[in-house]
Design a protein around this nucleic acid. Sequence first.
RNA 1: GGGCGCGUAGCUCAAUGGUAGAGCAGUGGCCUUUUAAGCCAUUGGUUGCAGGUUCGAUCCCUGUCGCGCUCACCA
Length: 505
Amino acid sequence: MAEYTNLEKIRLEKIQKLREDGIEPYPNRAERTHTSKQAIRAFEKSEKERLEEPLTVTIAGRLRSIRPMGRIIFAHIEDGEGHIQLFFRENDLGKESLKFFNKWFDLGDFIQARGTLFRTRTGEVTLRVQEYEMLVKAITPLPAAKDEVIDGDIVRHATLADPETRYRQRYADLAVNPDVREVFRKRAAILRALREFFDERGFLEVETPILQPIYGGAAARPFITHHNQLKQDLYLRISFELYLKRLLVGNLERVYEIGRDFRNEGFSYKHNPEFTQLEFYWAYADYFQVMTLTEEMIGFVAERVLGEKILTFQGNRINLKAPWQRIELRQGLIDVVGVDIKEHLSADSLRAVMKAKDMEPSPIATRGKLIDSMVGTYLEPTLIQPTFVYNYPRDISPLAKSIPGDHWTVERFEGFIGGMELCNAFTELNDPLDQESRFLEMGRDYNADDEERHPMDEDYLQALRYGMPPTGGFGMGIDRLVMLLTDQHSIRDVILFPHLRNRED
RNA sequence: GGGCGCGUAGCUCAAUGGUAGAGCAGUGGCCUUUUAAGCCAUUGGUUGCAGGUUCGAUCCCUGUCGCGCUCACCA
């Protein structure tokens, strides 16, 4: 049972009294002829055409401010597209009707109003209300103190700022913070642009299983669930990779999927346990071609969403125009920490030189993990402008193809923007025998009970034995791309309902 | 998981080892073109939760819950 605050009790009482008077505070049906924006546009058009007849419209929305001034009342309502001012006048409505509004309506209620449009002395297009009706009585007041209209924009004073409430009650956050709505509109535009980009280039959008008997394609701990009838444990996917590549075996030469991945790991400003991923696989391409396509893709999305390839992220001006900077991983680490990984082909040797350079290498990490941690700690934060780091260590890339003649390195790159890893791609390993030995290698590098261990996927190997064309593959966290294009510091600000701990107090 | 910080009215924030205050919102009144409208009056709090120290705790201490930052973790 909800416990009501005093403010809520007052509104509950209003609901009861309205019903006693035969007025339904939650009517089944509403009516509107114009949104706020449409109404204003229609009025401006009629002004231009010098129409004599006043324009009559019915609008509906949430009451965001009320300014009673005796026998008149000004109010603003907000709908999905904007806001518009209502003008209630005793001369138009009669004494009772004006009083009724004053008495029973509160900020946050939904109202439907019919009337004619005019311009006030201050020039604002306003609805002169002739009839109005309550659509919804809000019980809880919106967590915002007051609105001010400056140059036609609503400015909110003392608006909801507490991050916890904003994430837990996203509905309230959205209702009260228009820029939050804007972030999610942009997110939708980004997804639309990505689909357009791949559709235009002959990529087929597909859907692969989220519930998987064997997880794979990434190093991450999975969520485990259970199918009752099958009496079988299933995993929520940690990547799409192994299923999408099966499709290339099946002669679908260009595929992509946009969907949710789940990783049972800690969260941070750039990690949420479920997140949206884009992966694509492109037959007869290699990782350098994928790099070029990546530049095009990100540029295309930015054009669509921002109108240009320049953006500001956390105070940095970022230029997305191709070509992006390309740094070979080995050279990047030589430049940043002065370590040449080619001279340290064992984990122990690498650990020794890292210690000598005052780093604190993990005592159990593999060579590849040590290299990756140096990249993450020293190189990644410096990569503000779009950069591809390429040629990664083999032992952390079990699904990527080796560089011919180089046992230690694979054809793989990661893309960084704004000091943040954005995407990961490689020339896909399509040699089933090599793949099998890589799986076995991984099995040796991890303990049997380590959930990050890459499990052997026999069916995937079977697929490869039929033959997978040479392929370039790519994965990107969409949430991070949205962060970048909307200048949001935290992944929680680009996910509508980010995961938070349960409250038990 | 570790470290640091935060949690006070519906919202945004103050405050003190002596029992909590402002603006807005709310309530009552005045006001027929306002723009954070204005003016007068007024209600509102188990200070996240549970303990402890103290004559007395919102403040000090311990634990706990949640959030934030950070480190670890994160092919």
